[in-house]
Design a protein around this nucleic acid. Sequence first.
DNA 1: AATGAATGAGCTTTCATTCAT
DNA 2: AATGAATGAAAGCTCATTCAT
Lengths: 192, 192, 192, 192
Amino acid sequence: MKENAGDKRSAIVQTAIRLFTERGFYGTPTAMIAKESGVGNGTLFNYFTTKEILINSVYHEIKGRMGTNLSTGVSDEKTIEDKARRIWGNMIRWGVDNPNEFLFIEQFSASPFITKIPAEEVVKDYSMMVEVFNEVIKKGPLKDTDASVAFVVVFSAAKGITKSIIDAKGKIDADQSIDRSFRLICKGIQSE
Amino acid sequence: MKENAGDKRSAIVQTAIRLFTERGFYGTPTAMIAKESGVGNGTLFNYFTTKEILINSVYHEIKGRMGTNLSTGVSDEKTIEDKARRIWGNMIRWGVDNPNEFLFIEQFSASPFITKIPAEEVVKDYSMMVEVFNEVIKKGPLKDTDASVAFVVVFSAAKGITKSIIDAKGKIDADQSIDRSFRLICKGIQSE
Amino acid sequence: MKENAGDKRSAIVQTAIRLFTERGFYGTPTAMIAKESGVGNGTLFNYFTTKEILINSVYHEIKGRMGTNLSTGVSDEKTIEDKARRIWGNMIRWGVDNPNEFLFIEQFSASPFITKIPAEEVVKDYSMMVEVFNEVIKKGPLKDTDASVAFVVVFSAAKGITKSIIDAKGKIDADQSIDRSFRLICKGIQSE
Amino acid sequence: MKENAGDKRSAIVQTAIRLFTERGFYGTPTAMIAKESGVGNGTLFNYFTTKEILINSVYHEIKGRMGTNLSTGVSDEKTIEDKARRIWGNMIRWGVDNPNEFLFIEQFSASPFITKIPAEEVVKDYSMMVEVFNEVIKKGPLKDTDASVAFVVVFSAAKGITKSIIDAKGKIDADQSIDRSFRLICKGIQSE
DNA sequence: AATGAATGAGCTTTCATTCAT
DNA sequence: AATGAATGAAAGCTCATTCAT
């Protein structure tokens, strides 16, 4: 009974995501990942030459899933506002539904010793999102604002809201929080 | 020639902040901190019983400085809008001027295995800021929005902007970025 | 060329017995045991999770050998006196022939911080011996003496004699010493 | 209010006896002894140049007290048998009444890395006892037995009985145990 | 004489990585 | 391709000892 090729590899990745999130990169020995993946100690190193490569692989794996998710249903929306709202919701909901993956990315991004991913590469994954939000801004009163500032604000706020919902462990209504924060981002805290 | 009391302790803290930021908690051996602080290997453990306690001490040290800074000059401002603008600027400028400290806090917050600081304690340090922003919101069109959502959005956005300025390493005009992002937060990306 | 399984483990145990005896538990770094066993530093911890576990393992290993030895040839003896004499001789001769093991047990027993072995467990290993000596006593004039007192006296005396022969480093005729001490135990220093 | 000279020294010795017995030589840092003695860390080393010297000093201190005790009241006894009985009782009772000191000596004697005390020196402290027991033996049926064998048997048995009483923590009647074991030593387990 | 901050050698233990099977 | 025993470099931490005050 031969298992599917790649079975072991993806078992390792899945276990790694869970353990890294629960225990941190340095709190998770490779031996533990191997054991909980049901593979031999050395097998892990057949797939990932070093631990750092494993961490990077996990990062890219998650980033891929995130990107795919981000654009789900966006083209179905008619107005640009609805597209933006959809992206906003996709972004936060994915994190809330996949807290391990989300927290992994957070941890990875804050970790200084891990191989740095160039900023351009990071942005590339969000190009669709950037376009949509740029279009929204251009229609508003801040049309002259540098798009990159807006991108940072929007993206950071979404991450913050996601984290707050995850940390609340069910005590916050996610949909309501998503809705309110989106209005806040759109209308500002002051307007008048 | 006796050195000032506390000299060694604060030398250790300063070195720790720098090295932890440059190399991460786990990439920084206690021996390296001791050496670069100009103290003996065991001396570090006279002041901080374990490495984890050192990390936590550094965290609280920085949090203290940050809190002090946050409220600087706020009472001099007349309108509530100016108070909010001042806080926003204080927040970001502190991070830009003290990137090591700022990045340390980021790393610390994302680290899963480090002693968790209760959320209430974290918020307490920002009570003044929360009040001011609440007042601003109450005067705007989103008066009904839960203040905590606004707090998260504002705070996350400020952190994001700070990080983007630091990462740009001088290629971004900080004051301009602070100004624009503040307008964005106030007016929203869309407004009417 | 694969070595026999368990080779490394038993090499470690043998080295540990020797070094612990020569230098004491605390005078013997695990690294020294590993090196003199011809294994890597970490290998020792694959077999014994902690140093304390190694010490305990060595203790039980030796205790096992000692127990086996104690009863050798006893069933061949006809009279109960001969059985007792045989045990007495076995006991002392084993220590004289295996001074390292004997001294290890002495050191282990006197060590206050090592995991305590319950008294019952210790006695259990000598049950056969206890029975034989009890029978001897019952036939003598001290038939009413609590057996446990006799056990302690006999056992302690044997240990003392063993140690004195070892310390004399060949200057004492072991067989003569065994013989005389046995008569002393049987007849008493005074008799009638 | 000047304390008596030597107060600190004897405080250190007393604390050392207690801690060494409770925790072993290696489980007792000098800093702990100093602290619990109410003296400064460095003060201990004014009195005892090294830890090993402290351990040896404690040993000799205890040995002195023991020797003094051993001969108490012996000259008052008339018959040689009574002298022997008195010594036997003194020996065991001292250990039972001073378990810390007794166990310290046990631990010290079994410790291989501690400076060895020459055997002659050890015996010297018991010269009086040796004489008395020799006389007893000469009157018995084992008159030809080497005195040193008898000495070892008697001495070891006494130590064993002492330890058994201490270990029983009050569950054994000390006087009865002393009495019975003395008869055993005198009459032997078998006689007839 | 008394002190305690400072020290660094040395300890036990961990763990990413290798490699013979 | 899969394994897991073996490894040794490196880490955090302890503690006997020193010495300036």
